[in-house]
Design a protein around this nucleic acid. Structure first.
Lengths: 208, 208
DNA sequence: CTGACGCCATGACATTTGTCAGAAGCGGTG
DNA sequence: CACCGCTTCTGACAAATGTCATGGCGTCAG
């Protein structure tokens, strides 16, 4: 039904790299049933473009200046329920997939797919179905759920830049002792020797 | 002279993201004077392809599995002196530019340029000229040279994953005390409170 | 050759961090 | 309601880390 559809799928492309975005727009434009109606280089720009052009499908890069793809998808789900969202990403961490799915994202693919394949997936998503890259999905399953409590994850994230405990405590409005306890238990749960390696592990799993 | 040249510029494309590589190949193929003779997804693959196809210009992504773009460029300079090399990168850190230039790279551009612009730069590079993105260049100048001595940088790099001092000492075959001295002086030079923030700073500047 | 500088190390000290025990409040769930 | 887990805190101790002074050894410029 799709390739001969008289009303083509209207696509929004958001990626901060002009090179990729332009090339992608050109390639997707070759498909008769797809039309790129808007492009954006940042999260806020993507939102503005979506509001202005009301696309059928928004193809969002995960890492963009301003607001990342999942954040944009969350807003779009509320503002434009008719717009399906999908995420493309370079290096997909397991946790991102979970975040994306709970933001109502219907497609999650790595940038290692071909443009042809991406076009098919856009059609799949537009038809109301979901598509998740099998490799990313299995990574996410293997990584499992975060063993961290909400505060543990929060404090761990605040310590990501290597700041001393007193600074983290200030940022989190907690006692330094509490911060140390959280960091200690978080590191123990992750099997890390100290909070710094714990941060790396949690980031690799996408839990922060 | 270029657009009507009867012998087009033979280009090698190396990027680990199929989506980008394919799209780029398609767009560059539209230029009459450019022909993409080979594609590669990893560093070693790029080398093998270059040896097999002897391209005029190698367009290399900075971050690839196996060997990064600068490493590939270094090898190519020795093995295929007739092949010009250029680097495209997503997030270019200042230090990378310096490394690239000393590896004989003649072009250094971010992925935020358009394909049209990239084609022009490929021609520039092929003609024997250099091209460096102005913004990346000014960043590199602003970042300046690394204030770290060779060992300071080495030890700092070994501590990048958050390992404890004893482990770093083992890896570097140094005394733990020496490691602490180096880390301390490195952090002082970088204006960091501890080695972890020092590592982040040095990485941001591209000094590690 | 002498002085400057980087490299490597040791030892001592203060500070920071990690670990543990304990305790209070709070929100669920059986 | 009793129980459990999460949150928050305190205090105390051990371990890791940061800081400083000091010394020997090599190399290189003046």
């Amino acid at each position: 039904m799709s390739v001969t559809d008289p009303t083509p799928v209207r696509v929004l492309l958001a990626d901060d790299e002009h090179l990729i975005r332009g090339a992608l727009a050109a390639l997707l434009g070759l498909e008769d049933d797809l039309v790129v109606v808007a492009e954006a280089a940042t999260g806020p720009e993507a939102l503005a473009m979506a509001r202005a052009h009301q696309p059928d499908v928004a193809v969002l890069d995960l890492q963009m200046p301003g607001a990342d793809g999942v954040t944009v998808a969350t807003v779009l789900r509320d503002e434009l329920p008719g717009c399906r969202t999908m995420i493309v990403t370079g290096h997909g961490r397991p946790g991102h997939l979970k975040r994306a799915l709970s933001a109502g994202v219907r497609g999650f693919v790595p940038k290692t797919v071909s443009a042809q394949r991406l076009a098919e997936i856009i059609r799949t998503v537009h038809a109301g179905n979901r598509y998740v890259d099998p490799e990313l999905a299995s990574d996410a399953i293997a990584a499992g759920d975060s063993p961290l409590t909400a505060r543990e994850a929060e404090v761990l994230e605040l310590s990501a830049d290597g700041a001393p405990v007193t600074e983290i405590a200030r940022r989190a409005s907690l006692s330094p002792g509490t911060v140390r306890n959280y960091l200690s238990s978080a590191a123990a749960k992750l099997g890390a020797e100290n909070r710094h390696t714990a941060v790396r592990l949690a980031q690799a799993k996408g839990w922060v």
